[in-house]
Each structure stands twice: as C-alpha cells, then as structure tokens.
Design a protein around this nucleic acid. Structure first.
Lengths: 207, 207
DNA sequence: ATATAATGCGAGCATTCGCTCGCTTTTCCT
DNA sequence: AGGAAAAGCGAGCGAATGCTCGCATTATAT
C-alpha cells in the first residue's frame, strides 16, 4: 500500500557543494511554485531552474512530493518561529495588549510570502503533509490555550478549548483573507484599522 | 416558411438522454474528486465512472477544467441558495437573533458536502474560477452589509465594510474549521456550543 | 599520487493524460 | 417507413512527466 511517495531525503548532504545543491533545489521549487504554479512544477523544470541535473535532484529527494514537502516544512518552521516568539513576548501582558500583538503578528506572518503561503495551502493535502499541518495547528492551539489559562481571572467563564478555537479561527481568518484580498497593496492605515477591529472582536469575546 | 402544426409542445434543444449524460459526468467528477483526489481525476476515469465514453464527454465539456468548473459552479449555487434564503428570512430580526441564524446556516452549509467543499476550494485557482468565487464572496459581503445597514441603530459606530469583512471572515472560519476538524462526528451539543459562542463573538463585536 | 567515496550528469524509458476523429446507434419528425 | 439530426463510442495519437541508470567529475583520505 505504498500510496504516497516517500518524503524523506535520500541521503544527507555532507559536503558544502551538496548542501548548496539541496538549497538551490528548494529555492527553485519555491520559486516555480510561486511564479509558474504547481502545474508547471516538474522535476525536470526544478532541476533546470536550480542549475542542477535531474539525476542530482533524485539523489537528495526521492520524489517530487518530497521536494514540495521540504518547502512546506521550511515555510511552516518560519511561521511557527514568529508565532512562538510572539507568544513568549506576550506571556506577561494583559489580554488586550496580548491580543493586539498576536493579531499584528498573525497578519505579518501571512505577509512574509503570501503567494507561497497560498500555493502551499493548496498543495498540502496532496503531499501527505496533513499530519504535519495538524501538528502545527495543535501547537498553536496549545500555546494560545495556556496563555489564556494564565489570564483566566481577566476572563468570563468559558470552556478554554472552545474559546481558543474561536479566537484562533477568527484571527487566522482575518489575517488570511486580508492578505489574499489586498495582496501587497495594503496601506499601513488599513492594517491598523483591521488590527484594531480584530482586537476588539476577540477581547470583547473573552470577557 | 411552413408553419409547424401546434399539436405538440416544442422539444428542448437537449434530449433527455444527453441531459442524463451531462448529469452523470458531473456526478462522476464530484465523486472522483472526493474519493480519489484531483490527481486521479482524469477525463478517462471520469468517463469510465460516469458510464460514458470519452468522446461523449468532450461533446459537452471542452476540457477537464470545464468539468471541474461546472462542479464548482453547481456547488456554489447550492450554497448561495442557502445563504440567500437565510438572509431573507433574517431581514427583520434583531441582530442577536439574526447572527445566531446566520452562524447556524453557515455551519449547515459547510456540512452539506464537506469533502467536496474542501477539494473544490483547493482546485479553484487551477480552474481559473477565481473570478466566480470572488463574485460569490462579493455577493455575500453585499447582502450581509445591507442587513447590517438596516440595523445600524442597534450597533456602535463602525465602518460598515470593515465590520462586514470581520464578521463574515469570523463566521466562515469557525464553520470551515469546525467541519474540517470534526468531520461528520459532530454531536448536536457541540454544534450548539459553537453556535452560541460564535454568536456571542459577533454580536459582542457589533455593539 | 593513488584510491575511494561523494557528487553530478542527462539521454531516454515507461507511463499517463488530455483530447480527436471516423464511425455506429438512438431519437425525432414527417 | 425513412431520412436527418442528435448522441454516443473508443482506439489511439502526441505531448508531457516522473524517474532510472551508467558514466563523468570532484573531493577526501592515505
């Protein structure tokens, strides 16, 4: 039942040259995904753009899916880094300040590479990365939940899991839709209004 | 120009048989998208599952994308019907009652065919249906906005477009995530809690 | 310097896929 | 009944894709 192609690296890159090759391949994959779409993202094309031969590509990635999976992981790790840092920074702040910061960060995180974010979101189910993305969501949920728990005295009585689910969904949706709609032409003023309003939405809900 | 005897009603351009063929093709496409994924959704396979030949398929749909697009349109129309009806029904209700109804309907609409909804959402960019989906979003936005406008006296002072954007995003996200996470195993009790909480979120925000 | 391992190459195989075209069968209309 | 139009058929073409394999080049160790 080997329904999904293997996604683990075929071998580890040891020497500097091979590490550069791997990097070029990942870079090329992300670039093609964004600029030409998933359809045009063939292994031959990736190798061509990376300035590497197909043979070399297959020395490091056992399948096309493995390549996409690696790009997804890299991107997720980048975003998770931002989110984790924000939650640490926010740990001792009262709810209103904390929510404002988290909303701001959510929008920023989506703005890092909106087009890649979008393409990846579309391709995730097909690369067998569902498990990883669920882990990602669970981590966010856990972190936010534990913050809310520490601030329970400022809140009304609610089921913490439900409240976390509602808040994370709402914030994520505003960030996501904002970036999708406005693309890159988001004035700072508009962003500020959205942050204000989303903060109000969430803070008003929590207490 | 001989006159046609008025003894019989005019026949439709499409005969019953061909309408059945088109239907079978759409049904098969949706079915394969859900059960086997986009990768396996080939025109040959669609024809096979529909019990129709590839040649016949191409008599009605000029390309694979056209088929997927037709499925998307059908699905969107179904959902828009539900949403429109709900907004009519809600037009004379106060905000708290109206929001509750809309949240309920949003979750219901997502539950109609969650897996198809998901696959289609992923494939939209690929089928060049982005414009149609944006039209869909715009209609929802317009309808919700005009409801809010009619109830402005119950609300605090807000930019209507921003408020609409925030509310629609939040409600849609909760519905979407609820269905994605819980799949089909959603007890009525859990749904009720989520409706209550989301209603509180949105109503609290609006006033 | 030599041997061994690591890395890189790219033509081409096997397969899949979207789609066409010449033909047959069914339905409609007098 | 008979002819025309509508609907249906499916083998197969051409293009594209993922991937392999035998060989060439470069780095490392002795």
């Amino acid at each position: 039942m080997a329904r999904t192609p293997p996604t683990k690296p075929r071998k580890n890159a040891l020497q500097a040259r091979s590490r550069a090759t791997v990097d070029a391949l990942l870079e090329a994959t992300a670039r093609i995904l964004v600029r030409e779409g998933f359809e045009k993202t063939s292994t031959n094309r990736i190798a061509e753009v990376a300035g590497v031969s197909v043979g070399s590509l297959y020395q490091y990635f056992p399948s096309k899916e493995a390549l996409v999976a690696a790009v997804i992981e890299r991107h997720n790790e980048e975003i998770m880094g931002i989110v984790r840092a924000a939650l640490v920074e926010v740990a001792d702040l009262p709810i209103d300040k904390a929510v404002r910061k988290l909303v701001t960060v959510a929008i920023e995180a989506h703005r890092v590479n909106p087009k890649l974010h979008r393409v990846l979101a579309e391709q995730i189910p097909r690369t067998g990365q569902l498990a990883d993305v669920e882990a990602f969501n669970r981590e966010v949920h856990t972190l936010v939940r534990s913050y809310l728990e520490s601030r329970r005295k400022e809140m009304r009585k609610v089921d913490l899991d439900v409240a976390t689910f509602i808040c994370v969904s709402a914030i994520e949706a505003v960030a996501h839709n904002t970036v999708l709609n406005g693309a890159e032409m988001l004035s700072e003023k508009v962003v500020k209004v959205l942050v204000d309003e989303t903060t109000r939405l969430v803070v008003g809900y929590l207490r």
